[in-house]
Nucleic acid binder design. Structure first.
Ligand SMILES: [Mn+2]
Ligand SMILES: [Mn+2]
Ligand SMILES: [Zn+2]
Ligand SMILES: [Zn+2]
Lengths: 141, 141
DNA sequence: GCATTTTTTTAGAATCATTCTAAACTACCG
DNA sequence: CGGTAGTTTAGAATGATTCTAAAAAAATGC
């Protein structure tokens, strides 16, 4: 199974649809940012997004990048995640439960399908589980 | 097995010893802060530490709290950790590999002994594992 | 002990990520 | 059109953290 199967990419047309569905006007800025975040990036930070946007377009403000990721988050299209190795927030396109592999050499963060990781927890009495997330640190050949 | 068994507490005397062993002078400020962090707190943030310190002593600066947790971190006596639910760094006294349970009601973060959680990962070719950490979100009765 | 040197502490400034504000702009609607 | 609501924007504000440079304390050497 390829990596992409975890991240079904939306076409540019579908971006507009998703934005509208979420009650957001598909403005030119939102479409550009959302297309990058939802279709082309993996776990980007706001800085990553802004850098990409600046390289490909002109005049999109940092405030709009923040506004847009917040809007996408409220719409449930991305999740905000944090890791020990950075003080930045990363945005995860994959909003279904999954795990992560952090390549400690490159800093790359890779999704791991939940059925690739089996977790068996014997918790103390009275602890109920809502969600389990696993972070594996390692290296890729 | 009690929670404490995961966090062998050092006596106040041992704090001085640990600081010296790490090449740090056991100054009064460092002893106070380190005793709180290593013996009495669990996963405190700098804010938590400063608040506690201010309540029990006078004239210890925020800069010294930062300096001290950084010194403890360099000495390997604590680990810095971050979670999705907060933009603050938390300091973990338990420097051996272990997992965490986050009580989503109270925000409390509880250590889970690694032999209470079994993880079985089938990673793609070429990914080697250095470390696995599990975060369980849920509620305590 | 006292002078010298080194380490530590400190207040406040600086930085960095993020959020807020308020004004300019754009889209939609009657 | 003209009004209204939604959006973008620059820059200010905030909050966590780091830096700076000077004062204080501790160690060292006579
Ligand atoms: Mn990034
Ligand atoms: Mn705290
Ligand atoms: Zn992911
Ligand atoms: Zn812990």
């Amino acid at each position: 199974m390829s990596q992409e199967s975890l991240h079904p990419q939306l076409s540019s047309i579908e971006i507009e649809t998703e934005l509208k569905k979420a009650g957001l006007r598909p403005t030119v800025q939102r479409c550009i940012i959302s297309d990058y975040v939802l279709n082309h990036a993996e776990h980007p930070s706001v800085e990553t997004i802004k850098t990409w946007v600046d390289k490909h377009y002109t005049g999109i403000s940092l405030a709009t990048v923040y506004n847009t990721v917040h809007a996408l988050e409220s719409a449930g299209l991305v999740h905000a995640i944090r890791f020990d190795h950075s003080d930045k927030v990363f945005y995860d396109t994959n909003t279904t439960l999954h795990h992560h592999f952090l390549d400690e050499k490159t800093g790359e963060l890779i999704d791991i399908d939940p059925d690739k990781i089996e977790v068996n927890a014997k918790l103390p009495e009275g602890m109920s589980i809502n969600e389990i997330s696993v972070l594996i640190r390692g290296e890729r050949a």
